Amino acid sequence: MARVTGPASTVSDPRKRVIVTRPAHDAQVWAEALQAQGVACASFPLIEIAALPEPSALTQAWQAVPHCWAVMFVSANAVRFFMAARPEGLDISHCRAWSTGPGTRAALAAAGWPAELIDSPDEAATQFDSEALWALVSARVRASVDAAAQAPTVLLVRGADALGLLAGRDWLALTLQGAGMRVLQTVAYVRQAPVLTLAQQRWAVQAVSDGWWWLFSSSEAAQHLLQTCPDLALGKGRALATHPRIAQRLQSAGWGSVSLVPAGLAAQAQSIKSLP
Rank of each mutant, 00 (worst) to 15 (best):
R191H: 12
A253K: 02
W113T: 09
W213G: 10
S99T: 11
S43P: 14
A111I: 08
A31P: 08
G180P: 02
R158W: 09
G103C: 14
V74H: 06
W203T: 06
Q201T: 07
Q37Y: 10
L108T: 13
Q201C: 06
Q35V: 10
Q28I: 15
L34C: 12
T242E: 09
A50V: 10
S120A: 13
Q150E: 05
C41D: 14
W203A: 07
A149Y: 08
A147Y: 00
A124G: 13
P244W: 11
D161W: 05
A135V: 12
Q150W: 06
L174W: 07
Q200T: 14
D129I: 05
Q63S: 14
V29S: 12
W113V: 07
A110K: 03
A76G: 09
M1C: 09
A24I: 10
L184A: 04
G112F: 11
I49Y: 03
D13G: 12
V11R: 15
S120K: 07
V157G: 06
V258H: 09
L260F: 05
P53D: 04
T197R: 09
M72V: 15
D13T: 11
Q150F: 08
S99C: 14
S99M: 10
V157L: 09
Q63G: 10
P23M: 13
G103H: 13
L155H: 03
I19N: 13
V18F: 01
V183G: 03
W113Q: 08
R105E: 14
R245K: 07
D129N: 05
L275M: 14
E116I: 05
R96M: 00
L260Y: 03
V4M: 13
W212K: 10
P244H: 12
Q227E: 03
W255T: 12
R17N: 06
W171P: 00
V137Y: 00
I49V: 10
R105V: 12
R238G: 12
A36N: 11
A110F: 01
V11N: 09
G164S: 14
T10G: 04
L58I: 06
L265H: 04
M83P: 03
R22S: 08
M181F: 00
S259R: 15
A97H: 08
H243Y: 08
L234Y: 02
F82E: 03
P102H: 12
I246V: 05
L155P: 00
A109C: 07
E32D: 15
P87A: 01
C229H: 04
A239M: 06
C41R: 11
A40E: 13
A162F: 03
E123Y: 06
V145Y: 05
A149Q: 10
S252W: 11
S257V: 15
D170A: 04
D129G: 04
A132I: 03
F128G: 06
G38L: 02
Q251W: 09
R3I: 08
L232F: 01
E116P: 03
